[in-house]
């Protein structure tokens, strides 16, 4: 499996690592908002990861975290300004959640684990894969909530976000468990066997 699909599917930030859940739950009430946040996250993650990979040899080990956060904050502010200037309606709806991309641990994690160690090619693939995985998760959640709202108004409200996200995660876990059983019939489902919520390789 190459870097892109591994980052997008096997290590999906939202469904497998459960990272970036605050914007995921808050902005997934419509597909349009979800798409806006997915694009903003993609620009910030890809831009920061590529820049940090390019200058990784110049960043001293001791101050690498402040440097990473500085770069992420700069990209976040740029995206925020661009959105305020060129997509004002969207900005008015999701500006708060664009601003807090800077604290998204999904982004800091990819930069600490990949961009600060690997070359440009692998970093770019990993960042795009992670972004695609996040975008898929938030768009599916956004679409599900927007459709469910038609018959079930709660789906658009904050509690609805938790309910729908929980059901989707349960679905992802069920599919993953079935695949593991299909590959190896002797595997028993037990705690910590690569289910949602378990981070790491």
């Amino acid at each position: 499996m190459n870097q892109f699909t591994e980052a997008a599917v096997a290590r999906n930030p939202a469904a497998v690592q459960l990272l970036g859940l605050c914007p995921l739950l808050a902005v997934s009430n419509t597909v349009a908002n979800a798409l806006g946040l997915a694009i903003a996250s993609t620009v910030v993650l890809t831009g920061s990861a590529v820049l940090i990979s390019a200058i990784r040899k110049l960043i001293p080990e001791d101050v690498r975290l402040p440097c990473f956060v500085l770069v992420i904050a700069t990209f976040t502010t740029l995206v925020n300004l661009a959105m305020e200037a060129y997509a004002f309606d969207l900005y008015q709806r999701i500006a708060l959640f664009v601003q807090i991309i800077v604290t998204n641990c999904m982004i800091l994690a990819r930069i600490e684990q990949v961009a600060s160690k690997e070359g440009l090619g692998r970093t770019l693939l990993d960042a795009l894969g992670t972004s695609a995985g996040f975008a898929a998760a938030i768009l599916i959640l956004g679409a599900a909530r927007e459709i469910l709202t038609l018959g079930f108004p709660l789906a658009a409200l904050p509690p609805g976000a938790f309910l729908v996200a929980g059901l989707l995660l349960a679905g992802v876990n069920a599919v993953a468990a079935r695949q593991r059983r299909a590959q190896d019939p002797t595997v028993q489902d037990g705690p910590g066997r690569g289910r949602a919520g378990k981070t790491g390789p």
């Binding site: 001791d62 101050v63 402040p66 440097c67 500085l70 770069v71 904050a73 502010t77 740029l78």
Partner: peptide, 19 residues
């Protein structure tokens, strides 16, 4: 450490002011 942080901060500030 100080030099790296200062340089990066200067760069970030310049880009943000321009944009």
């Amino acid at each position: 450490n100080v030099a790296a942080l200062a340089a990066l901060t200067l760069l970030a500030g310049t880009v943000l002011a321009w944009f």
